[in-house]
Amino acid sequence: MEKVINITVKVWRQKGPKAKGGFEAYKLAGISGDTSFLEMLDILNEKLISEGQEPVVFDNDCREGICGMCSLYINGHPHGPDNLITTCQLHMRHFNDGDTITVEPWRSAAFPVIRDLTVDRQAFDKIIQAGGYVSVNTGGVPDANAIPISKIDADEAMDSASCIGCGACVAACKNGSAMLFVSAKVSQLALLPQGKVEAAARAKAMVLKMDELGFGNCTNTRACELECPKGVSISNIARLNRQFLKAKLSD
């Protein structure tokens, strides 16, 4: 049987980066359980536009959980109450009739609000620019199995590479730390032969940039891994610590 609910959405509205923001409550009636969370916001925005009001600004792109653009903090959780999904994959069937749903932007000093629910996540791009790439020429595509890579390393690198850079780790962290993101980006390269060459320099450069941009110090609360839509593990953080310390000690 189809679930249809009436809800109140409490949304953070803020005109610009410097403007003072506040919550606005909007009532929505007859929302189907099969509606995705972002479709619910589309319905709200159509309603606002038809009433001559400003629509709610929020980030979104692929709407299938792979681009990392959507970024809403819903009822105390980044990407909402469901596990291992992004906001765009969240459906209204997870809410009940009469619920008040609080929707906030990511909160972190390194992610300033641009407008309403949209935050500036360029800090992540700057960290990648600091070293999240392979700059050595690795030649053309080699024959399969020409470079032996163990299944364990291949799987681990693949798991690290599943990070979509959405920033939920920073949003969930009480310290505003970006360690899960940085460690995943370091690990996905450091575990493979092409990326190993620059592993030490990469770890140092990316951590330096992360600290410079004002992200906090990790205190191992594990909030990041518990809220990560891709289930990226804190074993990546241990690997980053290990690589960074090794690199510094061999300097």
């Binding site: 909160r107 972190s108 000093a109 310290n175 505003g176 609360t221």
Partner: peptide, 30 residues
């Protein structure tokens, strides 16, 4: 020192819907 830096990194704006991530109590109250 680390705690003060982390407070600053978190920013002045707190979440109105609080933080409901099921982390361990000790980890958050060191």
């Amino acid at each position: 020192w680390l705690t003060l830096q982390n407070k600053q990194a978190r920013g002045a704006d707190k979440y109105a819907s609080s933080n409901k991530t099921k982390t361990e109590w000790a980890a958050k109250n060191m």
